[in-house]
Design a binder for these strands. Structure first.
Lengths: 187, 187
DNA sequence: TGAAATATGTCAACGAGGCTGACTTATATC
DNA sequence: GATATAAGTCAGCCTCGTTGACATATTTCA
């Protein structure tokens, strides 16, 4: 039975669902703050990232990666092109294609965004149980350090005493228990 | 040097950035399809999930978990309450609070959504290098199997020949190279 | 007891970023 | 020369985030 050894408990898929939510929330939070200063959003980030990393990408390839429509892509791509972060060249073998490249400015911004995300990842990998441990410990390490305690505390609440009320509500329509139920339209 | 042993290559933070994107894309794609049948979206899912898992959650706690505004939460919470998936009770120790619980229907839907996500996770954990290997192999295992080859192919493209054009564009304003540059407003 | 703080709900307006559908323009292919 | 393909665009819609202002019930504290 592989348990990774380090700080992670046994992997429960149910716990991982939440950890993935928290890890991703904080993972995209870093670049979001930077992007806001440029008037860009997450959609711009994704485009800039993939164009930076795979120069010469075509529109069709980008659409396949991002899984969004041409119209959605075009809105953010247009911003990035007009503001000089991305440039297009016509394809040489197929002149219908538009090959996408980052400009110098674009590459600089992409690097800045990559830096903060890579920093979080590197920090997580460097933690005990980060690189070689369980997915659980890796994802926990990806969460903002200040928040980790709160997440642990929440997840420890699993199952036992709810604090206030009792267990889950039984009926579909709300059969009045000890706590008053604020129903759909009941007086 | 910990390498996890199994199928993952050495962990590069830069690769992990992309793998996390692809893994998360497919991870939320599963429930999205189910939610659409109920006329719900991702925001409903998040609320339903946390209320199901932590019965008796207060509004304030939920806001802290989701990191959204009261108004945003209220819109989706209202849907879930009106349609009978979630019920509220007034708190007993503090009657200002509204404790949130899933109804039977709500718990059923939550379970259905959890099931597809847990299935993907369990499958990933069961793969060689899934539970005990590197984060890289775990994330790759989280990607939709049909898509894995495409992701690998894309990531293999890293660095070398672009296929069509040449390297990254140097100048800020677009100095005409061999491929014609379709500039901002140049004729 | 009365004032202030707290938990929640709500109205209005706005922006980002998805979507569909329809249509145009270049270019390639047969 | 007809047809298919890559890309761009217009219009309109939906979800889900935001801010700001304000109402109500309840608790806490001086």
């Amino acid at each position: 039975m592989p348990d990774g050894g380090a700080s992670g408990a046994a992997c429960s898929s149910d716990d991982l669902i939440e950890l993935l939510f928290f890890a991703y929330r904080d993972f995209v939070g870093d670049p979001d703050r930077i992007l806001a200063q440029y008037g860009f959003g997450r959609a711009h980030h994704r485009v800039l990232h993939f164009v930076d990393r795979y120069p010469g990408l075509t529109i069709a390839e980008l659409l396949d990666i991002l899984r969004i429509t041409k119209q959605s892509l075009n809105r953010v791509l247009k911003d990035l092109i007009e503001q000089g972060y991305i440039v297009q060249r016509t394809g040489t073998s197929d002149r219908r294609q538009r090959l996408l490249f980052c400009s110098g400015t674009g590459a600089t911004l992409a690097a800045e965004l990559t830096r903060v995300q890579a920093r979080r990842l590197a920090r997580a990998l460097a933690m005990p149980g980060g690189a070689g441990g369980s997915p659980e410990s890796f994802l926990l390490a990806m969460i903002e350090p200040d928040e980790r305690a709160a997440v642990r505390r929440l997840m420890a609440r699993r199952g036992q005493g709810v604090g206030e009320g009792v267990g889950p509500v039984g009926g579909e329509a709300g059969d009045a228990l000890d706590g008053k139920i604020l129903g759909q339209d009941a007086a």
